[in-house]
Amino acid sequence: MPSAEPLARTSPKAPGAPPASLTAPVPPEPSPRRRGRPAALSPYAFLVPFFTLFAAFGIFPLLYTAYVSLYRAELQTPGELEWRGLGNYTALFADPFFWTALRNTFTIGVLSTVPQLLMALGLAHVLNYRLRGRTFFRTALLLPYATSVAAASLIFAQLFGHDFGLINRLLDLVGVHPVDWQNGTVASQIAVSSIVVWRWTGYNALIYLAGLQTIPAELYEAAEVDGASRWRQFLHVTLPGLRPTIVFTSVVSTIGATQLFGEPLLFEGSVSGGISHQYQTLGLYMYEQGWGFFHLGRAAAIAWVMFLLIAVLVGANAWLARRRYRKEAGQ
């Protein structure tokens, strides 16, 4: 990612080595051990709590999941592991439900991420101007993000209700037939995506807003003097200035979309993601295998496939971004 390079360039010198000017009366034999040791160790001591937690709750589950994914492991009989090798993985590729879930994850991901980031960008651009009640709007933006997934999903599930839902009532007012937001494939995916869009647009808008604050106001002033409209300013000042932030938000949103779980689970409270699995995401399918059917080995295999998928997607994202960065640097 591009932001890594400037950071590396400005990184301070090693804390253990003071600047030469301060150690003016140079002793003939500086004993770096005696003076260096506590100072050299302390940064590691500060890191220990984090890495202990990370090892316990990050690395260990990751490796243990990989281990379990090679066995037939059942929740109801946890003691009996039966070696399957890569059997759980090969079974997955022949499993129609897995491919459905993968496809759903992708379509819901696009349906939620694209509108979400576009709207966030627009909102951030508007909020960056001097508006009356700016703080109110900025705080209001963050409110959906601060709401719990469960609360939001349950409310949306009611709004999208077939017979008594507000949305179908409103559609009825304008003469549109009630939409089956639960059982229709596209309709249900739009409904689930709307929860994601609602929750995350404000969050992304605030991140964009933070990015926008780093763009010097002179650029906008200059553009205005040149007679550029707000739309032109957005295209030629805001967008280029925000590029690293946009890369960051797309990476984070991609990861979030790949792991999408709470919204589809709570939309109808069904682990199968609808009666035809029409909005079952990979995360939900993993949960269904693990905690609906109690096949922990298969759930672990899905978890690892998801992990690799995310790694590939994020890698691709970073690669694209870096290529652009190099191209521009080369100009």
Binding site: T139, L142, L143, A146, T147, A151
Partner: peptide, 17 residues
């Protein structure tokens, strides 16, 4: 104050869930 209010509201929502 507004921010604190937002945080407090979140806490209440989470507790309710």
């Amino acid at each position: 104050a507004v921010r604190l209010g937002a945080v407090a509201l979140t806490g209440a929502l989470l507790a309710a869930c």
